[in-house]
């Protein structure tokens, strides 16, 4: 099977302090670490598992600035065969829609059986790239995918719904799968694979290679720290004092 994985390099913000920069439109990034978007690590693993089973190739594609090549190299070390970076610096403001449009321009010339993306990126939280890309390529898609099982011509796909329910679909290939987190165990890269990946060429495509006019759906006007909502009554004091008050509250509610 020939597979494509779309990967994004994002700042790791889940446990970090995040501040708005002087432009008011971006965050201060110099104290953050960057890594492959969490859902994309599962998308990549899903593709590698299929390649292990059926053979074929994996092409990793990332729309990003030069640093994204580090992330693509990780994908190469884990099991991708080739990698493409689309120069984000050439294309101005991006959103999920425009990202998908640029990916489509590259992918339309590649033969593929399936495309894997993360279901969303933690930086811009769009949930868009997978389904938009599928629509532009004219192939079916599924989002929030928790399982892709290929047999003969049929593909069994599970989607994760709210409330712990699974939607079981049957799809045909080629298709796009936007993968949910936690669906497999992303692997490490071995030192041998890392060495091999270090020597591989990453194809870089810029404005001159993708001479299409693509526009975003939206323009970011400003970034700001979310206003605080209804705040909890904060109980203060030593652990013992706080515990005593909390126990009192729980008792008042008739729960002890």
């Amino acid at each position: 099977m020939d597979l494509i994985v779309c990967i994004k390099r994002v700042p790791q913000t889940a446990e970090a302090e995040v501040r708005v920069d002087s432009s008011g439109k971006d965050i201060v990034k110099d104290r953050l670490t960057f890594d492959m978007n969490e859902a994309d690590t599962y998308a990549l693993e899903a593709a590698i598992l299929l390649k292990e089973k059926f053979g074929g190739t994996i092409t990793a594609i990332s729309l990003g600035v030069a640093d994204a090549e580090d992330t693509l190299r990780i994908a190469l070390a884990k099991g991708a065969d080739s990698a493409v970076r689309i120069k984000a610096e050439d294309f101005g403001e991006l959103d999920g829609f425009k990202t998908a449009a640029l990916l489509k321009e590259v992918i339309k010339d590649i033969k593929f059986d399936a495309i894997f993306t993360g279901c969303m990126a933690t930086d811009d939280s769009y949930y868009q790239v997978g389904p938009v890309l599928a629509e532009m390529l004219g192939v079916p898609h599924a989002t929030l995918v928790s399982k892709v099982e290929v047999s003969e011509e049929k593909v069994r796909v599970n989607r994760e719904l709210e409330g712990g329910l699974i939607e079981h679909l049957e799809m045909s290939l080629p298709a796009v799968f936007a993968v949910q987190t936690g669906i497999n165990e992303p692997r490490y890269a071995s030192l041998i694979a890392i060495r091999r990946a270090a020597g591989k060429e990453i194809k870089i495509l810029g404005k001159e290679d993708i001479p299409v006019e693509t526009k975003t759906n939206s323009t970011l006007e400003e970034l700001f720290v979310p206003p605080v909502g209804k705040r909890a009554e904060i109980l203060t004091g030593s652990a013992d004092e706080v515990a005593a008050r909390t126990a009192g509250i729980i008792k008042e509610k008739g729960l002890i």
Partner: peptide
């Protein structure tokens, strides 16, 4: 114009649709 959350919910943004 919409309000969305970015960066693991640590930032809000105002965005204008085309």
């Amino acid at each position: 114009r919409v309000t969305r959350q970015l960066y693991d919910g640590k930032m809000d943004t105002h965005m204008k649709l085309s």
